[in-house]
Design a protein around this nucleic acid. Structure first.
Length: 600
RNA sequence: GGCCCGGUAGCUCAGCUGGUUAGAGCGCUAGCCUGUCACGCUAGAGGUCGUGGGUUCGAGCCCCAUCCGGGUCGCCA
């Protein structure tokens, strides 16, 4: 049934022909996108990645064999079509299609491939279950919206290559098969056949290699790099993802690095969105981001900022608040302006349950009316305390104020940060056309892990501390700030980086602060530390999440939509059925013995 | 590992307090139709109700277990 092209050459893509091709003989190729058979006249759209063109088969014009063949075409058949491009009558123009004023009057055509009826509609309007879309990803990708997103992804990668090339960065590949590093995310491991019982690790990022490239004198490096992390997934997290990874030499100040890379973001928005982003971008210190937004990746497109009310609430009769503050915590509030008449008691209770998922023990609230306040806290407070509280958070009639208190500030921030986003979603406070870009700077260098009873590097152990905080490295590690920066867009972390430690003495102090002995540091990072003995230039860098950039520019909040062949939340590939069991001979070759009794 | 939501025709869904033969729209198949574009009209096919067990005179609906997909907390230097 299917025919060969037999010398036919495509003259145009389907979405391209316009005024200038009118009256010409064209040859188009593509997929049948719906057929309308009116009897002696058959219409269909032919679709390719550029768009669609209506093709017309006419019993009075076509010979009988051609017309009868046209009656047999079905959705998703692949056709090659020859015909004359004609203008449609004004009343027959389809304003919803880019080529809607034209049509191809078919003289001859070939069926290049037939198709089964697809399991779901190939269009942008149908809301098909994502499981099915992933099983038939090659069909899902035919949908115009998916074609647009992957084209966008290509153009973003192209802008990155052009921009960094123009800035003097070399694109250099680094290994996929590498060495497992103990700290950080869980590694994907690949067994070695040659060394039974030993493993390669897939890179979580090219971090150490790019720093070595700086030592090698390449001065500026970038790479569009696949990275792998064997951790649980989220709507914006996949086990394999792509970074635009950069590193540059002879910089010691964060500003030197940030200036180059905010230029990239501005270029992206200019070329992709036609939006001018004023530079420099706003900078916000980590401490401010946490205090105002309860997040190190604040969405600054709306208000509902956090307010510290510890001093006022600590002076009330509410013992549970006083205890938390005395234990080093705080009471903070969000004023949900104008929400009192929109939030029922039941909905407020739901919000209380919501913040509990962020480890908050509870949440108090206060609704303000013209007659006064109604609150779970009012019984603990004097009139004057209520008045100063309302003034502090700027509350007026019809506002609801929410309070979270905990002995651990992190819990307060996490709960109110999440509540803030939830309220914005609920009351539709976010302008979807707005792009708020900023840098978050001065991150803490360390993170204390209560379970392990030690400090961990918040970024990684090669991140440089702020030089002015050096004297606190041993005495007060929690207050040491890092030369680290994150780029944030609309509440998403788009990328992050740091100035690295290039000074050997400082690196040794850093390892000691992290609880490594000289021996254990050498054991884990020996080759890397040795490299720094041979002349390391000061350097720093950044890595952007390409998937997240595409996601935000495409206007989706699902990372799977911007990856051609994504994985499910359980890290499986529904199309290829990966991962899969392998036969015993293959395992034997790798020296791997799997105990199958436990797995049944 | 925890919590939450979902799984009924090819697709999207409805299915009441457990009660007759499980429905609708789209799609599909066949016929008619020369300006359609969500074509129209007529007729038709199409169901392990995710899977296994249980309760019951009777289960799509209730209970238990399990699989799959999604969201989220932990996790993600």
């Amino acid at each position: 049934m299917a025919e060969f092209l037999n010398g036919w050459k495509r003259s145009h893509h389907c979405g391209v022909p316009c005024e200038s091709e009118l009256g010409q003989d064209l040859t188009l190729m593509g997929w049948v996108d719906g057929k309308r058979n009116l009897g002696g006249l058959i219409f269909a759209y032919l679709r390719d990645r550029s768009g669609m063109m209506q093709v017309v088969f006419d019993e009075s014009r076509n010979d009988r064999a051609t017309f009868e063949k046209a009656e047999g075409i079905r959705s998703e058949f692949v056709l090659a079509v020859k015909g004359v491009l004609a203008r449609r009558a004004p009343e027959a123009i389809n304003p919803d299609v880019a080529t809607g004023a034209f049509e191809l009057l078919v003289s001859d055509f070939k069926i290049l491939a037939v198709s089964e009826t697809p399991p779901f509609m190939i269009d942008d309007d149908s809301e098909t279950n994502e499981m099915l879309r992933m099983q038939y990803r090659y069909l899902d990708l035919r949908r115009p919206v998916m074609q647009r997103i992957l084209a966008l992804r290509h153009r973003i990668a192209k802008v990155a290559r052009d921009y960094y090339d123009a800035q003097g960065f070399y694109e250099i590949e680094t290994p996929i098969l590498g060495r497992s590093t103990p700290e950080g995310a869980r590694d994907y491991l690949v067994p070695s056949r040659v060394y039974p019982g030993q493993f390669y690790a897939l890179p979580q990022s090219p971090q150490q290699f790019k720093q070595l490239l700086m030592l090698s004198g390449f001065d500026r490096y970038f790479q569009i790099a696949k990275c792998f992390r064997d951790e649980d997934l989220r709507a914006d997290r996949q086990p394999e993802f792509t970074q635009i990874d950069c590193e540059m030499s002879f910089v010691e100040d964060e500003e030197d690095v940030m200036a180059v890379h905010e230029g990239f973001m501005a270029e992206l928005f200019r070329k992709i969105k036609g939006i001018e982003i004023p530079l420099p971008l706003p900078r916000m210190k980590y401490a401010e981001a946490m205090a105002r937004y309860g997040s190190d990746k604040p969405d600054t497109r709306f208000g509902l900022e956090l307010v510290d009310v510890s001093d006022i609430m600590g002076s009330t009769e509410a013992q549970f608040l006083k205890d938390a503050i005395a234990a080093g915590g705080s009471v903070r509030a969000i004023n949900a302006v104008g929400s009192a008449d929109k939030l029922s008691r039941k909905e407020i209770d739901k919000l209380v349950e919501f913040v509990k998922t962020y480890r908050a023990k509870g949440m108090s609230w206060m609704t303000v009316t013209a007659d006064g306040v109604k609150s779970t806290l009012a019984k603990f407070m004097t009139e004057a305390q209520i008045a100063s509280l309302l003034e502090r958070v700027g509350a007026k009639a019809n506002d609801t104020v929410f309070f979270v208190c905990d002995a651990d500030d992190e819990v307060v921030f996490a709960a109110l940060g999440a509540l803030r986003l939830e309220l914005a979603k609920r009351f539709d406070l976010i302008d979807p056309d707005r792009f708020d870009l900023l840098w978050v700077t001065e991150f803490p260098l360390f993170e204390y892990d209560a379970e392990d009873g030690r400090y961990y590097a918040k970024h990684h152990p090669f991140t440089s501390p702020k030089l002015e905080d050096l004297d606190k490295l041993e005495s007060d590690p929690a207050s040491v700030r890092a030369k680290a920066y994150d780029m944030v867009l609309n509440g998403y972390e788009l990328g992050g980086g740091s100035i690295r430690i290039s000074n050997q003495e400082l690196q040794k102090r850093m390892f000691r602060a992290l609880g490594f002995t000289d021996e254990s540091a050498a054991e884990r990072f020996g080759y890397f530390l040795r490299a720094f003995q041979y002349g390391a230039p000061p350097h720093g860098g950044i890595a952007f999440g390409l998937d997240r950039i595409v996601m935000l520019m495409a206007g989706t909040n699902n990372i799977r939509d911007v990856i051609a062949f994504p994985k499910t939340q359980n890290a499986s590939d529904l199309l290829t059925q990966a991962p899969n069991a392998v036969d015993d001979a293959q395992l034997a070759e790798l020296g791997i013995c799997i105990d199958k009794r436990g797995t049944e």
